[in-house]
């Protein structure tokens, strides 16, 4: 289990490789607060994102989590919360 923060760059990289990227709507700081739907990423793209995160970090992200992450910034925060919660669980478990 890593203690590294999940970053916007990482989110952008996962979305770009998994679901493709459009040059006209770059995924970076300038669009961190733009809704995913406006950036052209639908619920499938977000499910692809969460499944990558789950595999990469071994955390469980609930099925309906994608409904709670409307923008890249919120998604990054959400994922970091899950990572922190998982770390907390780890500490207690050991």
């Amino acid at each position: 289990m890593t203690t590294k923060e999940f970053t916007l760059d990482e989110l952008a990289e996962i979305l770009r490789t998994g679901s493709g990227a459009d040059d006209s709507a770059p995924l970076d700081v300038s669009t961190a607060h733009t809704e995913f739907t406006e950036l052209g990423y639908d619920s499938l793209a977000l499910l692809d994102l969460t499944s990558h995160v789950q595999r990469r970090y071994g955390v469980v992200i609930p099925d309906d989590a994608v409904e709670d992450m409307p923008t890249p910034a919120v998604a990054v925060r959400y994922i970091n919360d899950r990572l922190a919660a998982a770390r907390g669980t780890d500490v207690r478990a050991h």
Partner: peptide, 8 residues
Amino acid sequence: VPARLIAQ
């Protein structure tokens, strides 16, 4: 074909 469509 747009990249978004190629991925899927």
